[in-house]
Each structure stands twice: as structure tokens, then as C-alpha cells.
Simulated scan of single mutants.
Amino acid sequence: MHISGNTIFIPGSTSGIGLALARRLQAEGNTVIIGGRRTDLLEQIGRENPGLHTVAIDVAEQASIDAAAAQVLSAHPDLNVIVAMAGIMRIEDWHRPESFLASAESIITTNVLGPIRLIAAFIEHLRSRPEATIVTVSSGLAFVPLRVTPSYNASKAAIHMLSESIRLQLADTGVQVVELVPPAVRTELLPGQQDSEFAMPLNEFVDEVVTLLRDQPDATEIRVERVEFLRHAEARGDYDQVVASLNAADPHGN
């Protein structure tokens, strides 16, 4: 993925990593469309960020994805990058089904079915472009589990393997598949995470991501240095120690 000259759609980008990345990518010379559920918030972001386009979308609803895709492609037929940023994370207690089942279903719908449906809505258009990119968003927790967030961990592991698989299938096209693998970042993904000393400052994270995108246009994974501890734990042979360290240190890792 080239760092500039793209038209990029980022659903789930009205706050946190998504919004910060959207602003930085716009500053790098890209046309950026952000998506979210709250139209009032989208209007506010549009007023505060001239040139940043907005569209309403709920990635948990198929009809909303279809409507947003039609709107985006009508207004931006040169679209060549989608970033499946939308995701939710919740603390769960799996001792009793009534305390986790609804949460688990919601997480899988948003974090796994959402990106799948999003890619399905855009894949034919992306294949028609000379160069295009699908950016998925997994997590360090795709590789090492945080005890209190089982469904989130599983959803991000699914996104990692989905990314690996569709990259193989799309190798005969001009569509690149790039997996963004964040560590814990200071956002409001979990209550209190924005103030966690264990989480990476948001601006530092986005700065490093943009640098990696600029320096590694052919990368299949974008990993900041702080996530390597989790990403390669099994390969290094210290998986059990990393699991113990992660779960002893911080309930807000992602």
C-alpha cells in the first residue's frame, strides 16, 4: 500500500485509532471517508476536519453496510482502500452463560462478520482497480490471550487467519491484504484503557504505523515494536511466560 494518493474508506473511525489514523492518512495526501453509527458525531467530525468525508454505517447490520457501500462508491468511484477498523471489546466471565453469551455474540457479529460483510460489499470494485488494498485490524491478543476478554481474543485470532487466507486467494488480483496488529493503545476500547500506563499513547502508535506504511509498502503485517512481544511469543518459545506476564500486568491490553 502506498502512503499517499489513495481514496480510503475507514468504517468505525469516529474515535480512537480509527479517527487518529484517518486524520494522519488525510494529511499524507489521501482522500479519506470515515464511517460510524452516530450521524451527529459524524457531522461534528466533518465540521472539525475539513476535507474528511463521512458516511453512516453500522457494521453489525448487513443492510447498513450495503447502503454505505453504494453511497461511498457513488461519491468516490476511485476508492481503492478499505480499512476494516470497527470493533468492540468487552470483559466477560465465562463461569455462567447468562454473563457472557450476549456479549460474545455481539463481539463476533461486529469484529468478524462485520469485516467479512464489508469485504464482500467492496471486493468486486476493488478487483476492478489497478491497485487496491484491504486493511484488516487484528490485535496482539490474536496471538496471546488476555484472560478477561475471551471473545475479543477469539475474534482477532479469526481476523488474523482470515487475512492470511484471503491474501492467498487474492494473490492473482491487484488487491493487497495488509493486517494491522495493534498492541494495547490508549483509547476507550475498554473502560480506563485511555489512562493505562501499560497501553501505548495513541499518537505514538499512529506515528509508527504511518512510518511503517511509508517504509514498507509491500508489508503483509503492520506491527509496531511494542506488539512484537505478543506476536512472536510462540515462535520464540516463551509463550507460557508471555501469557503469564500479560495477565499479571494489565486487564486493559488489546
Score class of each variant (00 low, 15 high):
47 R>W: 01
176 Q>G: 01
227 V>I: 07
183 P>T: 10
87 G>V: 06
86 A>L: 07
143 F>L: 09
190 L>V: 02
8 I>V: 15
69 A>Y: 09
231 R>V: 12
243 V>Q: 05
200 M>P: 00
48 E>C: 04
103 S>K: 15
215 D>L: 03
113 L>K: 14
37 R>Y: 13
7 T>D: 06
251 P>Y: 06
212 L>E: 04
49 N>H: 09
87 G>A: 14
214 R>C: 01
105 E>G: 09
19 L>N: 04
112 V>I: 15
163 S>C: 03
18 G>P: 04
199 A>R: 05
85 M>Y: 13
120 A>I: 00
74 S>R: 11
215 D>W: 05
55 V>F: 07
213 L>H: 00
16 G>Q: 08
178 V>D: 10
101 L>N: 05
171 A>W: 04
14 T>D: 02
139 S>G: 02
159 I>E: 04
82 I>E: 06
214 R>K: 06
91 I>L: 14
226 R>I: 00
98 E>L: 08
68 A>F: 06
180 L>H: 13
219 A>G: 10
25 L>K: 09
84 A>Y: 05
9 F>C: 02
233 A>K: 03
63 A>T: 12
16 G>F: 15
124 E>H: 12
171 A>N: 08
215 D>K: 00
43 E>Y: 00
245 S>A: 14
16 G>K: 11
143 F>M: 09
178 V>C: 09
178 V>A: 01
93 D>K: 13
104 A>Y: 01
211 T>K: 12
17 I>T: 05
224 V>S: 03
53 H>A: 10
87 G>N: 06
236 R>H: 10
174 G>C: 05
